[in-house]
Measured scan of single mutants.
Amino acid sequence: TTVKVNGTKYKFDTPEEAQKFAKKAADKYNLKVVVDGDDLRVE
């Protein structure tokens, strides 16, 4: 599972880890998590 934040992709072994990271990033930058198929985007 990958998470894309500000054009940078981060790869995670499990969707749970990816979800946690995406949520933290979204909170930090005051953005929202967008599900894109198997991957997540923070925008």
Rank of each mutant, 00 (worst) to 15 (best):
T1Q: 06
T1H: 10
T1L: 10
T1I: 12
T1W: 14
T1N: 07
T2S: 07
T2Y: 12
T2P: 01
T2R: 03
T2V: 12
T2H: 06
V3N: 01
V3C: 01
V3A: 01
V3Q: 00
V3L: 02
V3Y: 00
V3I: 03
V3T: 00
K4H: 15
K4T: 15
K4C: 14
K4N: 13
K4G: 04
V5Y: 09
V5R: 00
V5T: 02
N6H: 12
N6V: 06
N6T: 03
G7E: 05
G7H: 06
G7V: 02
G7F: 04
G7M: 04
G7A: 04
G7K: 06
G7R: 05
T8D: 06
T8C: 13
K9S: 14
K9M: 14
K9Y: 14
K9E: 14
K9H: 12
K9N: 11
Y10L: 04
Y10D: 01
Y10M: 04
Y10P: 01
Y10A: 00
Y10C: 06
Y10R: 02
Y10N: 01
K11I: 14
K11Q: 12
K11H: 14
K11S: 12
K11R: 12
K11D: 08
K11G: 05
K11N: 11
K11C: 11
K11Y: 15
F12N: 00
F12G: 00
F12D: 00
F12Y: 02
F12C: 08
D13H: 09
D13M: 08
D13T: 09
D13K: 12
D13C: 10
D13A: 13
T14W: 02
T14C: 04
P15V: 11
P15H: 09
P15A: 11
P15S: 09
P15W: 14
P15R: 12
P15L: 13
P15E: 07
P15N: 07
E16D: 09
E16M: 08
E16G: 08
E17F: 02
E17W: 01
E17H: 05
E17M: 08
E17Y: 02
E17V: 03
E17K: 07
E17Q: 11
A18F: 01
A18S: 02
A18W: 01
A18V: 00
A18I: 00
A18G: 02
A18R: 00
A18E: 01
Q19F: 15
Q19I: 15
Q19N: 07
Q19T: 08
Q19R: 12
K20F: 09
K20L: 13
K20T: 12
F21H: 03
F21I: 01
F21T: 02
F21S: 01
F21C: 07
F21K: 01
F21D: 02
F21P: 01
F21W: 07
A22R: 00
A22S: 02
A22Y: 02
A22I: 04
A22K: 00
A22G: 01
A22L: 04
A22F: 03
K23D: 10
K23C: 09
K23H: 10
K23W: 09
K23M: 11
K23T: 09
K24Y: 14
K24L: 14
K24E: 15
K24M: 14
K24Q: 14
A25G: 02
A25E: 14
A25H: 13
A25L: 15
A25C: 13
A25Y: 15
A25F: 15
A26V: 03
A26M: 03
A26D: 02
A26N: 02
A26L: 03
A26K: 04
D27K: 12
D27E: 14
D27N: 08
D27H: 10
D27G: 06
D27V: 09
D27Q: 12
K28T: 08
K28P: 03
K28H: 12
K28Q: 11
K28I: 11
K28S: 07
K28D: 10
K28E: 12
K28C: 14
K28W: 13
Y29F: 12
Y29A: 07
Y29T: 05
Y29C: 07
Y29G: 07
N30C: 10
N30P: 04
N30V: 03
N30D: 10
N30E: 07
N30G: 15
N30W: 06
L31C: 05
L31Q: 08
L31R: 04
L31A: 14
L31N: 05
L31G: 15
L31P: 03
L31V: 14
L31F: 09
L31T: 14
L31W: 12
K32Q: 13
K32F: 10
K32V: 14
K32L: 12
K32D: 09
K32A: 11
V33F: 05
V33W: 05
V33G: 01
V33N: 01
V34L: 09
V34K: 07
V34C: 08
V34D: 05
V34I: 13
V34F: 13
V34A: 06
V34T: 10
V35P: 08
V35L: 11
V35T: 09
V35H: 09
V35E: 09
V35I: 13
D36M: 07
D36G: 03
D36N: 05
D36K: 05
D36T: 05
D36L: 06
D36W: 07
D36A: 06
G37E: 05
G37I: 04
G37Y: 04
G37V: 04
G37P: 03
D38F: 10
D38R: 08
D38S: 10
D38M: 11
D38T: 11
D39R: 04
D39G: 13
D39K: 05
D39H: 10
D39V: 15
D39N: 10
D39C: 15
D39M: 15
D39Y: 11
L40S: 02
L40I: 12
L40V: 05
L40G: 03
L40H: 03
L40C: 05
R41Q: 06
R41A: 10
R41K: 13
R41V: 15
R41T: 12
R41E: 06
V42S: 02
V42D: 03
V42Q: 03
V42W: 03
E43D: 11
E43I: 11
E43P: 03
E43G: 13
E43W: 06
E43K: 06
E43T: 09
E43S: 09
